[in-house]
């Protein structure tokens, strides 16, 4: 085994956390090859011997600086890819973005399409995965109208696509009040009728309160299940194709797969 110095920057899983980690690694006196960016999951990964761990303290200013230079010195496209990758489910996204940026600051705007470079490809894949799930959920997300008229959706996506969805639905349903709750990350997108949206992190107690008061369905659910059942052609039944197109993991949150009949 080769003995070399390793400096591992451990970042919080957020825009600020990851970009600060990259900033700090960049600004350090170490060579780039000696640096690693690690994004924390719930717990730290196993600890390596002969490595120095640096805990990154998220810093808005540093994060801003990185964002600005990506936009100015690479391209808007690169900026968008990096921001999506940060929200993606790729567990090595910190490292991927770091390596991509190293390459892209050298190559300029065309780096985004240089699929022959392994880090560009990794970034591209993370972004594609994010985009695909986001696109799926624009269709698969379901709202239930509450008694007060507020529309409520729950889901648990692999990638953190809440911002995308809020952008999409606040344009589409601008005159409605709606909430989208990510049960996995305990974050909620809030849109009040005719005003700007924001994302809010719920405490465990708040999340429980929310689940307790939430009403799963109104009369339209029944109608939708009727439609969904009737529109299929029996002679062409094909559960395999249905599963390919609509993976099972989405279904627990979807009105048409609830086993309910008229009360």
């Amino acid at each position: 085994m080769q003995m070399e110095n390793l400096y591992i920057y451990r970042c919080e899983d957020s825009v600020e956390g990851i970009l600060t980690g990259i900033y700090d690694a960049w600004a350090s006196i170490h060579r780039h090859e000696e640096n690693r960016i690690e994004v924390c999951g719930k717990e730290w990964e196993e600890t390596r011997l002969f490595a120095e761990y640096i805990t990154v303290i998220p810093d808005a200013e540093k994060s801003e600086k990185v964002q600005r230079s990506v936009r100015l010195r690479i391209s808007e496209e690169a900026y968008e890819m990096v921001m999506k990758a940060i929200l993606s489910q790729d567990t090595e996204k910190g490292e991927v973005i770091y390596r991509f940026l190293l390459y892209a600051f050298r190559e300029g705007a065309r780096a985004c399409r240089s699929y022959g470079n392994p880090w560009v490809m990794r970034l591209f894949e993370a972004v594609r995965n994010y985009d695909n799930e986001s696109h799926h959920l624009k269709g698969f997300l379901r709202f239930d109208a509450q008694e007060n008229g507020v529309l409520v959706a729950r889901y648990a996506p692999k990638n953190n696509v809440l911002g995308d969805l809020m952008e999409h639905f606040s344009d589409r349903l601008n005159s409605e009040s709606f909430l989208i709750f990510d049960e996995k990350r305990r974050i909620m997108g809030v849109h009040q009728k005719d005003s700007a949206w924001f994302i809010y992190r719920l405490s465990p107690e708040e999340a429980k309160d929310f689940s307790d008061t939430y009403v799963e369905e109104d009369s339209y659910g029944v109608l939708w299940r009727i439609f969904h059942r009737t529109i299929a052609i029996a002679d062409r039944e094909n559960p395999g194709l249905q599963r390919n197109n609509l993976p099972l993991r989405f279904r627990p949150y979807m009105t048409e797969f609830r086993e309910k009949t008229l009360a």
């Binding site: 696109h135 698969f140 344009d171 601008n174 005159s175 969904h228 299929a232 559960p239 249905q242 197109n245």
Partner: peptide, 24 residues
């Protein structure tokens, strides 16, 4: 795009909302 006071927008790529038992 959507418009204040109205409902809905449209996305050029189209969006699938569900798939029926025949996979369509």
């Amino acid at each position: 795009e959507g418009k204040a006071g109205e409902i809905g927008n449209s996305v050029a790529a189209g969006i699938c909302h569900s798939f029926s038992a025949d996979g369509r």
